[in-house]
């Protein structure tokens, strides 16, 4: 039987890890954020106003999202960035707005609404330029989520002292990287079944996608294994985790075949922020859904204080 809680998951931290990401953030800062919001009356409801939103991110690429704001309650609202899973398109976050959040569902580059320039396809994103950390497909993708936080910071209806992140799988993994890259802004992270943690260990523990993409890549390019390991170390949540300051909720399925629970436990171990771990026996990648959503909602409400 696997000892998922105590298994060793190690990732070497590149010497220039901080400089690498500082350079990425500096690149973003050279472009005006230039957010464009268009109200969408037919997508709005009596409870929620919906906007189509876009903004400029890493490399000058324009990225899309959906933004939903409560009609009720009193601004400023807490802000929440919701981050999509690997194969998911972001849905309009009306349910979060109904709970009192100004919620931005980001579609990072490569997602349908943001793939005019960069479109690695699915499967494909995980291994796009995976031999070169400077051009790895995920570089801009990670930074697109950071820039979504910046959009919320510019919104007058958002309380900039109450901004959180929520997502599961890829959304959980990028919650960690984003909280690490905006440590003084993010005040809460809800992180389910985190992907992109222990990236080189995970494919040895599962044959499920998307990690199976790495096994497939190495089947064709076995000599690239060291370069792949070197690249993904820059993107591994375990290397971001120590920089996270915000209270973080991690929830795991103990039989998760997609993101092996060993990697989630490893993430929890290296986080130094206030942290809560919920584990669910006999659960796989849903990691306790749907019941865990109440836990997520309560956690975010405790820290971000929505008023509706």
């Amino acid at each position: 039987m696997r000892d998922v809680e105590n298994a060793t998951v190690e990732v070497a931290r590149p010497d220039d890890f901080d400089e690498f990401w500082a350079a990425g953030l500096a690149d973003c800062a050279t472009y005006p954020l230039d957010p464009v919001l268009t109200e969408m009356p037919t997508l709005s409801t009596p409870l929620v106003v919906v906007y189509d939103v876009s903004y400029v991110s890493f490399g000058g690429l324009r990225v899309s999202g959906w933004y939903a704001v409560p009609r009720g309650g009193e601004a400023p609202y807490p802000g929440l960035v919701t981050i999509p899973g690997y194969i998911s398109e972001p849905t309009i976050p009306k349910e979060w707005a109904e709970l009192g959040y100004a919620a931005l569902a980001v579609a990072p580059r490569g997602k349908l609404r943001s793939n005019a320039v960069f479109n690695p396809g699915y499967p494909g994103l995980l291994t796009n330029n995976i031999v070169d950390h400077n051009t790895y497909g995920y570089r801009g993708f990670y930074l697109d989520v950071v820039r979504a936080v910046d959009v919320l910071l510019e919104r007058p209806e958002v309380d900039s002292s109450r901004i959180g992140l929520a997502g599961s799988s890829q959304g959980g993994g990028l919650g960690i990287s984003t909280a690490a890259l905006r440590p003084d802004v993010i005040k809460a992270v809800a992180c389910g079944a985190p992907y992109l943690c222990g990236i080189m260990t995970a494919p040895t523990l599962t044959r499920s996608y998307p990690y199976e993409e790495i096994n497939e890549y190495l089947r064709l390019h076995p000599k690239d294994v060291d370069r792949v390991r070197e690249t993904v170390a820059y993107y591994d949540g375990l290397n971001f985790a120590p920089a996270v300051k915000a209270p973080t909720l991690i929830y795991l399925g103990l039989e998760d075949d997609v993101c092996p629970p060993e990697t989630g436990f490893a993430l929890h171990r290296v986080l130094t922020c206030p942290k809560t771990l919920r584990t669910y026996e006999n659960c796989a990648h849903h990691a306790g859904l749907p019941g865990v959503m109440r836990v997520v909602e309560d956690f975010l409400a405790d820290h971000l204080k929505p008023v509706i």
Binding site: G253, L254, E255, D256, D257, Y280, E281, N282, C283, A284, H285, H286, L289, P290, G291
Partner: peptide, 9 residues
């Protein structure tokens, strides 16, 4: 469905 998705799968 139990919502123990490992069991269900």
């Amino acid at each position: 469905v139990t919502h123990l998705d490992g069991t269900d799968a």
